[in-house]
């Protein structure tokens, strides 16, 4: 743990109010307030024990409400089998609408809303689980689980697939689509329009000066043209070096090439503290550290651009602020 990650880590639960106005009222206020105040002062790596305690506590609460409530009976019960649809469901659905979420929803590097996902039952994407849960609707991604999806469709389950290819501009549409599917149109409209307004505000801060940035993930994989990260980098007023070099999707970029182009910003991802992998070592390679003119760091809040959702605005915001820091649009400076 380098220094005190409190500013970045602590920011996550608190930051989104402008984007996610109704996130805490939507589910268990009690636990939310409780959880926020109990955050350790330095963030640390408290997520595991914290999550565990909360899950135990909350699933008890959740199960009891589930069995007694009749209030959401007319709203469809939804089961999500993909980490990205998990988060849209979490944002939009009433708690007792959620049959289960995918088990990846707890992974902080993929799921921005991983703490909110903790109380709900989890599935591992198998058709049998759908049978047992008998949801009114199954939502999943187009990227994986094709066999499961087609099996469920032949068995007359309602399955809705959400595309994996996304950009900052497709997100409001996805939010509205999910809202319509689960009978939460008004809430979806509110979140989507707030997001659109925030995105337009951030875009308005762009200027002709576009420093180069590159997202250098584990194992030296870069996020090139067509990725969500590429559109985030673009929306933040930066030039994605990976796209400039002709890389599309997720492709490994030799470290030598990165060094020879000397990008202004190198966005690395934060390693998992409790489960090391050699893949994370690339961020500590002395060759990267030797680049004197480049800013290197985990600038994007964890999980903020792994999936399309209103929280992507946090990634745009973080990169916009970084850009303004290194290359001000103000000609006087």
């Amino acid at each position: 743990m380098r220094g005190c990650p409190a500013d970045r880590k602590g920011q996550r639960p608190l930051a989104p109010p402008s984007v996610l106005p109704d996130i805490s009222p939507a589910r268990g206020e009690i636990t939310h307030a409780d959880d926020e105040t109990n955050l350790p002062p330095c963030g640390g790596d408290g997520r595991q024990p914290r999550g565990g305690r909360r899950t135990a506590l909350l699933s008890a609460v959740f199960v009891s409400t589930l069995s007694t409530t009749a209030h959401a009976a007319d709203l469809p019960r939804v089961m999500s089998m993909n980490v990205c649809t998990d988060q849209l469901v979490l944002l939009l659905a009433e708690p007792d609408q959620i049959a289960s979420l995918s088990d990846l929803s707890l992974d902080p590097s993929l799921s921005f809303l991983h703490t909110d996902a903790a109380p709900y039952p989890k599935n591992s994407g198998r058709a049998e689980e759908v049978f047992l849960a008998k949801p009114d609707l199954v939502v999943t991604g187009t990227f994986s689980l094709h066999n499961t999806t087609s099996l469920l469709e032949t068995l007359d389950f309602a399955v809705e697939e959400f595309a994996y290819d996304q950009s900052v501009d497709t997100i409001p549409g996805e939010i509205r689509r999910m809202g319509a599917l689960i009978g939460q149109d008004a809430k979806a409209e509110q979140i989507a329009s707030t997001y659109e307004r925030d995105l337009a505000d951030l875009r308005a801060r762009q200027c002709p000066m576009k420093p180069t940035a590159i997202a250098y993930e584990q194992n030296g994989v870069v996020l090139g043209e067509g990725t969500l990260a590429d559109s985030v980098i673009d929306a933040a007023g930066l030039t994605n070096l990976a796209t400039e070099l002709g890389y599309s999707a997720m492709t490994p970029l030799p470290l030598e090439e990165l060094v020879s182009h000397q990008p202004d910003i190198v966005i690395v991802s934060e390693p998992m503290a409790d489960a090391p992998a050699l893949a994370d070592q690339i961020a500590h390679h002395p060759a990267l550290r030797a680049l004197e003119t480049s800013r290197i760091g985990a600038f994007v809040p964890r999980g903020a651009w792994a999936c399309g959702g209103p929280f992507v605005i946090e990634a745009v915001r973080a990169l916009t602020e970084l850009r303004e820091e290194i290359a001000s649009c103000d000609p006087a400076r």
Binding site: P254, A275, D280, P286
Partner: peptide
């Protein structure tokens, strides 16, 4: 078994070896 999703890709490295992006350290 590692919870880190990248660990299982590294089976290839540990069984077949590579010298890619090594450093002076």
């Amino acid at each position: 078994l590692s919870p880190n999703p990248f660990a299982s890709y590294e089976i290839i490295f540990w069984l077949l070896g590579s010298l890619r992006d090594r450093s002076m350290s």
